[in-house]
Design a protein around this nucleic acid. Structure first.
Lengths: 189, 189
DNA sequence: GTCTATATAATGATAGAC
DNA sequence: GTCTATCATTATATAGAC
């Protein structure tokens, strides 16, 4: 099925998306130029305009679909903290990482609304549904906030307090913090 | 005391710093142009170069000195969670906010090292010293991560799970999460 | 489907008049 | 101390050749 305006090469579009995710993930939205993406994808800059219309269009096509928490949800909630901490620890420091992309792109006012919509629908809602007790949406928000804050401090900024410690200490601390939110019923402390 | 190169107006330098903090706080480092800062400060663009050398020089002069946690530390650690949650809730949505500036500027590779140094020295170290038990630096890192993640999700992105809830629920959830890290001794789960 | 070429605007930075 | 003027560069976006 051909596009109405111009013919489309599926592999070119995919190469642009892959490059865009890498670049947005490592340099944020404002810090990323279309030329850098095009070079990384090995295609001409003009093709980005042809395929995605604008920089913002490319961002919308690249990032929100990657916010998938199925691996996080696979298992009992009594082990959520440990499971999440292990998943966050296993990721390679290089390449594309949806959480890093999210953190770095959030700085841009043009990205925040799209991220908000995607997070509410694809992360908060399903996560809240798995929580027992009160204030499930607030606690789901706190879980996401804890994971994002951990990545911000550990991987984006790299504070010594976290990076200088043993991996087991980090995992334990993160797992405990997450599990505490899961297990709490949301009532006042 | 005059500068070696050119004469200095203290009030002009301060106006530039104030404007830079506001702008970096709301639009990040890459999303902020020197002209926007100059306009907001009511001064000429060229003066920024004269006073701070470069955009990076201005950032280094503007942001790190504002990372002050003395108000957070004033009081017993048994009430740290509630105190922090209240402080984070009281801030006005407008104007300069060091935490928002930190979150939005961290996206830039040129800013992260300076932020890391400032956070390690001015936040993690004094906070870890106030914690009892084991792994004090990791837990101090988790406390900072939780607060930053909360602001990222609540104020920068504004996910509905947090923003759509009553203030008391948010404060309780944040306070409980922070206090749990303070009270834990750092041992495994 | 992909390219060259370009329009238009904004960027950070600096030289030098006043 | 502050300004005008301008530099070289880069940005996003488009028109149109092939």
């Amino acid at each position: 099925m051909q596009n109405a305006v111009t013919a489309i090469s599926e592999r070119t579009a995919e190469a642009i998306l892959v490059a865009a995710r890498k670049r947005f993930s490592s340099h944020g939205y404002d810090g990323t130029g279309l030329r850098a993406i095009a070079d990384l994808a090995g295609v001409n800059v003009a093709l980005i305009g042809r395929y995605f219309g604008s920089k913002q269009g490319l961002f919308l096509a690249a990032l929100p679909p990657t916010l998938d928490i199925s691996r996080l949800m696979g298992g009992p909630m009594s082990e959520f903290g440990a499971r999440a901490a292990n998943l966050m620890d296993m990721r390679s420091p290089r390449g594309f990482d949806p959480m890093l992309a999210l953190i770095r792109a959030a700085a841009s006012p043009v990205c925040a609304p799209a991220l908000k919509a995607a997070l509410d629908r694809q992360v908060i809602a399903p996560l809240a549904m798995r929580l027992d007790g009160r204030d499930t949406h607030v606690r789901a928000g706190m879980i996401l906030a804890t994971m994002a804050g951990y990545d911000l401090m550990m991987r984006v900024i790299g504070i010594e307090g976290l990076r200088g410690a043993a991996g087991a200490q980090r995992r334990n601390s993160l797992a405990a913090a997450l599990q505490h939110v899961v297990d709490s019923d949301g009532g006042p402390g």
